[in-house]
Design a protein around this nucleic acid. Sequence first.
DNA 1: TGACAAAAAGACAATGGTGTCGCATAATAA
DNA 2: TTATTATGCGACACCATTGTCTTTTTGTCA
Lengths: 182, 182
Amino acid sequence: MGDKGDKTRERIRTEAYRLFAEKGFKEVTMTDLCQRTGLSRGGLYRYYSGTADIFAEILSEEYSIHGRMEEGESARAILEDMLRAVREEIMEKELSLSLAIYEYASLGNEELFMRINQRAKDRWSGLIKYGINTGEFKKTDPDQVSELILYYYQGLRMWSRIIPFQEKTAENYVRTVWELLV
Amino acid sequence: MGDKGDKTRERIRTEAYRLFAEKGFKEVTMTDLCQRTGLSRGGLYRYYSGTADIFAEILSEEYSIHGRMEEGESARAILEDMLRAVREEIMEKELSLSLAIYEYASLGNEELFMRINQRAKDRWSGLIKYGINTGEFKKTDPDQVSELILYYYQGLRMWSRIIPFQEKTAENYVRTVWELLV
DNA sequence: TGACAAAAAGACAATGGTGTCGCATAATAA
DNA sequence: TTATTATGCGACACCATTGTCTTTTTGTCA
């Protein structure tokens, strides 16, 4: 595959991402993607063997980027960053893959999603442990609290696709997490 | 419609409920329902005009039953009941409509789901206020805490469809809510 | 420029769903 | 029994989507 081919693959993924965010997984067809990308069916199938193929690649991209905890960084600062990111995500209804992920997950791939879930939990509990160590956070059960933070977020994210959210709801989330930890 | 017709309608809904719980909303076809109910396509369409029609009826049934807060009842006892129910729901993967609801909701009906959401919130914040009044609960912000309880639950419910849950996860939920309130 | 490979187009049959229609059968009332 | 109504059947035409296949266009290098 040449240089142009790579660009095209990427373009396809970008457009697919938008489509999945808009319509979920099941609702997106290769024909939809044709319109968005300007490619023909034949052209598309040269790159991906179907919507599941594309989605799998998007997922693995999405979850391959890790935040890092630098030695010596302030736990509170990291927390603030993470919460800011979460807050922004909740408020932008359009770009959430959550429905698509949910639909895609319901077709199988249990192990993949166990890994994703575990990694997200670990990320939070890692931060919590770190914060407790540095004395910046209260002493709490990292496993318990990280589950709370995570699933609360997932629930929010889910509903934020369905109904319009007020600032207050996102704010409550941030406040709750902060009060629990700090 | 005669007596037999009513029975048939009910049978259809029962089978449809199972199907929706298994496969979500979009994936269920009238043809699927034929196999389950033993009816033919023509027979089915005599009762419902499509899957959305059936689902709407199931939804309205599902959300028409209200728990009641009797005067003089102990807030803690009510809380215990509610948590017990939640706990059971989380552990039984099969019968969750959550994916179906999510998919169905993503097709529109914003107002309906705002009402459902509001009602669920009110139910919790009502209990919290009541508990604070009777002195059984700590003084917290009912709105803030009820959102936490609710979305945490939703997130859990979502993931419990995707990956197998350990007892501990459900337990954490119950414990967290309890510690927050009592 | 011409040859060759990569990229893209679009027609194709196959599949699997939709909702409707006319007819058959079962239940019921006269 | 007979007439009437409720219930159920399955064929039908229609539509969207799928993945494949052949042909055409584009780009690159000798």
